[in-house]
Design a protein around this nucleic acid. Structure first.
Lengths: 336, 336
DNA sequence: GAACAGCAGCTAACCGTTTTGCTAGCATTC
DNA sequence: GAATGCTAGCAAAACGGTTAGCTGCTGTTC
């Protein structure tokens, strides 16, 4: 397509003037402006982003690295992020680390090569929090999303996992349940660890302790939660209520119940932190916490764009969002 | 970060030699190669993608434009596409047109400015099929996904919508249903139109016609399908089976049933074309067609990369995938 | 009316690669 | 030993923008 030189020639001005018109970066007389704009539209000119990036050192690209694209929670994040990124005038480059540290490393190298202006990262690995350096040795502005890792000095957007688990557990205890089991996420993740801690803390506060074999790891995956739930419910003294650490796993648990012929909430109460969009239509409605993904995403972008524009001088900001408990019909009072 | 000049200086060679090593594009003696590689790793050098794009005219970026990111079908496409794009050595730039032609136009302009090497497009608008010209006036290689539009001359990947609807409808009729209703998608889309046609065709083949007020438009949206289903089922002579045109709407219909106190499949049979991943865990399992999104995505990328490398000489290829019927428990034989 | 300030618009250097000649050194051939 | 052929490696010219710095015109001031 046409270059800035073609436009300049056709409008009988210099390339500097065309650039000034395109970027509105200097005064141009109305007469010349009109000639330039006419030439632009006649030649169907659009500035080359590659040339711009090279000269400006900014690419107008923001990277989003999610840990598991197949998880509806992150799918929702992608949806919200695409809109927010576009609203700020950037384009979104999407990556999926699939919970694998080696993928994450490869992706971060790629992001650096693309000279993305900023990164929203759902971290898998501690390594990833070492800030990524750009072509001038500056750290690429990064916001960690949803999870954090030890000793980072980066902006973070998280949910209060401990509080979420506490709310759900308290709700189950308020219904009279004492034999509560849980299917947790991976404990090397802050989301997994925090949610387990919150549950244990809430029970401890009422003098309760879950049986060791009522605490199971579910990897945040539907299929694993399914088989773990089957095990959990077929043992001699099964729990009367299960707290499930995320929405995808809750779906797996529901499937296990159906296959075991158990009725929810009559035979067992189920509640979770986090949910799946669209699941709202199915019965019984799940009692769960809702996490404000859209607000969290918008805030992440505000932080990121702010850091891009202001430089990375400011101290890291850690913003914690509060979940809200939504009561469905998946829990019933304890009956002995 | 370090530039190719820094590397060249440190290895005491020219930039051309460094480039030759990095791209493996010319013979370099083992001795120099070692010096260059050492310098690269000492300086932690990575070539600037911006400079490369500018010089080569290729950006290693592929654009994916989906019509509705909130729809799980497209979320799945995004997931599959990210993996496939990475496997081919590209990065994925994601856009959501949100079913709005004006968004689509803005996005395509942006894609051109970014000089993306190829586009996978779920088209909303007829306009979008006019091929997008790149900086040399060449059409940017494009594959239309899922939907087509009149008179295009582009590669397409689609599902056989008519066959999908026919299969589902025949299944319902085989169970003895004759009063079959449907909730369709938007009829300006080939997916919406094709599925309605397939249903009508199948019924016509057995001498049946649906009552006009049993054919309703649901916009492929959960909430609309919910209210349309309520209307459909509360009229004097409701259908005994409903064919729903996609998975999201099927969820809305199920929600309507629950709220109306109707039992599926005892009171009414439900079946759909297309489904939602993860819904498999819920009861009753939906009778529906499954669409091979992953295969379709991989094929789309094969086509796209092929066209990028070979140039756009070849004729447009239109590949149609076949859906498969998966029988759940959401349909029962007709009882008068 | 000379000196000068202000400013619209231009020229040209630069961003970091790739790639096209070209050079120089060596081996081969008669 | 001169002519020739080969080829490893180099210098320099793009690619298409942005922008610092300059030019030359107009208008103001004493």
């Amino acid at each position: 397509m046409a270059t800035i030189r073609d436009v300049a020639a056709r409008a009988r001005v210099s390339t500097a003037t065309v650039s000034a018109v395109v970027n509105d970066s200097a005064y141009v007389s109305p007469e010349l402006r009109i000639r330039v704009l006419a030439a632009i539209s006649e030649l169907n000119y659009a500035p080359s982003q590659a040339a711009r990036s090279l000269k400006r050192g900014r690419s107008q690209l923001l990277a989003l690295v999610v840990a598991d694209l197949a998880n509806p929670f992150f799918a929702r994040l992608v949806w919200a992020a695409e809109a927010a990124v576009a609203a700020w005038g950037y384009s979104l480059v999407l990556f999926n680390s699939d919970e694998k540290p080696e993928n994450e490393r490869r992706i971060l190298a790629r992001i650096r090569a693309l000279s993305c202006d900023g990164i929203i990262l759902v971290p898998v690995d501690v390594v990833s929090t070492q800030p990524q350096r750009d072509s001038e040795g500056e750290a690429i502005p990064t916001v960690l999303f949803g999870r954090t890792v030890e000793g980072q000095n980066t902006d973070t957007i998280t949910i209060d996992n401990v509080a979420a688990a506490r709310q759900v557990t308290n709700y189950l205890m308020d219904l009279g349940h004492t034999r509560i089991g849980t299917i947790t996420g991976p404990l090397h993740l802050t989301t997994g660890r925090g949610r387990l801690e919150g549950m244990l803390e809430a029970m401890r506060a009422r003098g309760l302790t879950p049986a060791p074999n009522h605490i199971r790891a579910g990897e945040f995956r539907e299929d694993i939660a399914y088989s773990v739930a089957r095990e959990l419910l077929t043992q001699p003294e099964p729990p009367t209520a299960i707290y499930v650490a995320n929405g995808v796993m809750a779906l797996g648990v529901m499937r296990a119940l159906a296959d075991l012929g158990l009725k929810c909430p009559d035979d067992i109460s189920i509640a979770s932190t986090d949910t799946i969009p669209g699941i709202g239509g199915l019965r019984p409605r799940l009692t769960r916490t809702e996490h404000p993904v859209i607000d969290m995403t918008n805030e992440a972008l505000r932080l990121l764009v702010d850091r891009i524009n202001r430089g990375s001088r400011a101290d890291a900001r850690n913003i914690v969002f509060q979940p809200s408990l939504v009561v469905g019909e998946s829990c019933a009072p304890y009956k002995s």
